[in-house]
Design a protein around this nucleic acid. Structure first.
Length: 735
DNA sequence: GAGTTTGAAACT
DNA sequence: CAGTTTCAAACTC
């Protein structure tokens, strides 16, 4: 089977092996092509790993067919680190992809052979050793996909999994650079740190690394690797299995081997995901974990706070709960619902979140395969939702939506089918579920590509709960969506910006503010109501739970949150003013509708509108939204200035009853979409050159956030404008 | 659930 | 930029 090799010639030795079935098998498994005469002294970094996909530039499905292996970010000048660079807080993250492992295995194998040749080692093909890495990698690969829902074909097809090596603080944890520079120790330690979807993965990988064949070469490589990537070793590393790149893989590896996994594995996977995340992030530093390197892509934008993120519903057995974003994993799990839902914003602009420095990236073991990518976000590149469409049980339309891409690719049920041709399309009852995000748009003519569409306006893809027709706001029409969005943004750069701007500072000098702005939160551009008296949800100010301002052109404003003339919100006992009575009536009505849980303003900090210490939780707190008659989620975002909510202003106005804002602007966006500092554009301080213009009182205008607020420069300077939620789509203007 | 009202968004 | 039209959410019955 093999020719007698020239022991002194590596090349011939390799050639011999290249002809072997084993090598062929390896080659088939590995994306890399057989390389002849690979230099023994090839450095670890010379493996020529493909550069990371530009997942942060747009929600487009990145065609990272090529997997990533180890990456270190110390040298930001290296383009291959762009991925990490994009993650402001992920600087030390190193990603290992299973495919890269294959590559590496291949390389190792070759090197091993070469070494054997040089050493005069037995030339007989050492099947056992040679195959071991392959087998292990196979297993690893397979296991990496365990988490993927069995029923989602895309998931099954998405064989690529990645191992994310996330370097945490250099002060703790096992350090690869510690101890003797030895491949085995290096790998062993590393393997111990690996967090895999399944225990088998870790075991397999570890075994692989310990295999004699690998070990031999590993020692050499380790030395070289340490040499070449000293920075990488400067801090300890934690390995994370990132099985979430699957979405992109779906389209590119559809024909690749299918990985089947048992249903039973999913709960375990989820548990693993949860525990590893919580143990490494939450437990350690509940509030600062996000700043740490260890992150998981598993989704975390539930409305129940971080604690609940990614909790599979045991009862539902619905694995399609994992949403993934290139940038930030986002997952939604409805608090009280047994079904999983994808919160809006999940997939589209997660990339944008990448820029939110403090948030870092949620990296987790996820098995997301479909691309909702948005979500993340940002809304997430989200890409992914494992769908349970084919499971046929407890399938949440939203989840199905998320898997549309995959479904389409794999021939599974399409969202449209679900939306329009099956009982599933029935919207869940917001009232019953308490999930405001359940109901979505109902567009018929706009194709969900205009701001009329709440989903589109919110920067998220439509999902299964939408009742829209001829919808183009779906991942499969990503290009169209982005193009349209871009067009709209060209018209109005703030079209997708939060509509409601809030101040979060205590606003010590409220009186000044009162005159021009009845409340500390204001609608971005003001309303134009004429008949609703700003007492109904037609009014965006009212809907946003903010008072009208001088920017409003409304007529007979009676906004209970504050009128544009600066009058205090609803003064129940105001004389004989019929209008006031009406306002009071409305306020009462509002309270009756859903304000049972109305709280004093000083409790506002617990409200979703307030900024949480941890972005991931705060805005995702489950909220009982008033005005949830329809349970419509807000389509717009908040722009918060400071930490105090605008409602505080109301309190300061002496408003007896806190009128909780209607839900529309209270939508709980995916994790990380809040508390994001507004773009520079929004921070322009309302200068004349600002993108936003402030027109005459009677004209429509888009004013800068600052312009909306008081005139106190000092206060202005101290405030921090924050997007409570940012547009879901990735910034199209990103470099 | 159908029809109406409303005002933002889009268009001219 | 203003007026008009379109649109979909909010609302009413």
């Amino acid at each position: 089977m093999m020719d007698t090799p020239e022991r002194n010639q590596i090349g011939s030795s390799l050639s011999r092996y290249e002809d072997s079935p084993v090598f062929n098998y390896l080659s088939n498994l590995s994306p890399i092509k057989p390389t002849k005469s690979a230099p023994i002294n090839q450095t670890f970094t010379s493996l020529n790993f493909s550069s990371l996909p530009s997942i942060f530039t747009s929600p487009h499905v990145s065609s990272h067919k090529e997997s990533r292996f180890l990456r270190s970010t110390p040298d930001k000048s290296q383009s291959e680190f762009s991925y990490i660079d994009a993650c402001s807080n992920k600087e030390n993250e190193v990603i290992v992809d299973v495919n890269q492992l294959h590559k590496y295995s291949s390389e190792l194998h070759k090197k091993s052979v070469a070494l054997d040749s040089l050493r005069g080692a037995p030339l007989e093909p050492r099947h056992e050793e040679s195959d071991l890495p392959v087998e292990l990698l196979q297993n690893l690969k397979a296991n990496a996909c365990h988490s993927i829902t069995e029923d989602s074909s895309q998931s099954a097809e998405a064989a690529n999994s990645s191992v994310m090596i996330d370097q945490g603080p250099s002060s703790s944890g096992p350090a690869l650079h510690k101890g003797p520079i030895g491949w085995e120790s290096l790998i062993s330690d590393g393997a111990d740190l690996l967090m895999f979807d399944s225990p088998n993965m870790a075991k397999d990988l570890k075994a692989l690394f310990k295999s004699p064949a690998v070990e031999r070469v590993g020692t050499l490589l380790a030395s070289q690797f340490l040499q070449d990537t000293p920075d990488f070793l400067k801090s300890d590393s934690t390995f994370l299995v990132d099985a979430c790149e699957l979405q992109n893989e779906v389209h590119h590896h559809a024909e690749s081997e299918r990985i089947d996994y048992a249903h039973d594995d999913f709960p375990n996977f989820m548990t693993d995901c949860m525990t590893s995340h919580s143990s490494e992030n939450m437990d350690d530093e509940p509030t600062t974990s996000l700043h740490r390197g260890v992150r998981r892509r598993c989704l975390v934008f539930d409305t129940n706070g971080a604690q609940n993120f990614f909790l599979p519903d045991p009862s539902s057995s619905n694995p399609s709960m994992c949403m993934h974003d290139n940038k930030k994993g986002v997952t939604s799990k409805n608090a009280d619902s047994s079904t999983l839902r994808i919160l809006p914003g999940i997939g589209l602009h997660l990339n944008a979140l990448a820029t939110s420095g403090d948030h870092g990236v949620q990296v987790s073991v996820s098995s997301c395969s479909t691309s909702f990518q948005l979500p993340t976000t940002p809304q997430e590149s989200v890409h992914d939702v494992l769908t349970g469409a084919s499971l046929g049980k407890n399938v949440d339309p939203g989840m199905i939506q998320g898997s549309e891409d995959a479904s389409l690719a794999s021939g599974l049920v399409s969202v449209d089918d679900i939306n329009h041709n099956s009982p599933i399309k029935k919207r869940c009852k917001p009232e019953s579920s308490g999930d405001e995000s359940c109901k979505r748009c109902n567009c018929k003519k706009s194709k969900c590509l205009k701001l009329y569409c709440e989903c589109f306006a919110a920067g998220v893809y439509c999902i299964g709960t939408c009742a829209c027709q001829n919808c183009f706001n779906k991942p499969i029409h990503e290009d169209t969506v982005l193009a349209t969005r871009k067009q709209i943004e060209s018209r109005n750069p703030l079209a997708f910006a939060p509509k409601v701007i809030r101040t979060s500072d205590p606003l010590p000098d409220v009186k000044d503010e009162v005159v021009s702005t009845p409340a500390s939160a204001r609608h971005k551009r003001g309303c134009n109501c004429k008949k609703s008296s700003c007492l109904k949800k037609y009014c965006e100010c009212y809907q946003g739970g903010v008072g009208c301002s001088i920017n409003c052109r409304c007529e007979s404003c009676k906004n209970v949150f504050g009128t544009k003339d600066g009058s205090a919100p609803v003064a129940p006992h105001d004389d004989d003013d019929d209008e006031e009575e009406e306002s009071e009536k409305v306020a009462k009505k509002i309270n009756n509708k859903g304000l049972q849980n109305a709280k004093p303003h000083n409790n506002e900090e617990h409200s979703p509108n307030t900024f949480p210490a941890t972005p991931l939780r705060l805005t995702r707190m489950p909220v009982q939204l008033p005005f949830s008659s329809k349970g419509k989620p807000p389509r717009s975002s908040f722009l918060t200035v400071g930490s105090a909510s605008g409602l505080q202003a109301s309190q300061k106005f002496g408003k007896p009853n806190y009128v909780k804002p209607p839900p529309k602007y209270q939508r709980n966006y995916p994790a990380g979409q809040n508390e994001i500092e507004i773009p520079e554009m929004l921070r322009n301080n309302g200068s004349p050159n600002s993108v936003m213009k402030t027109g005459s009182p009677n004209s429509k205008r888009v004013s800068s956030p600052q312009s909306t607020f008081g005139s106190s420069p000092a206060r202005r300077s101290t405030r921090k404008l924050i997007l409570q939620s940012i547009p879901s789509f990735p910034s199209l203007t990103q470099p």
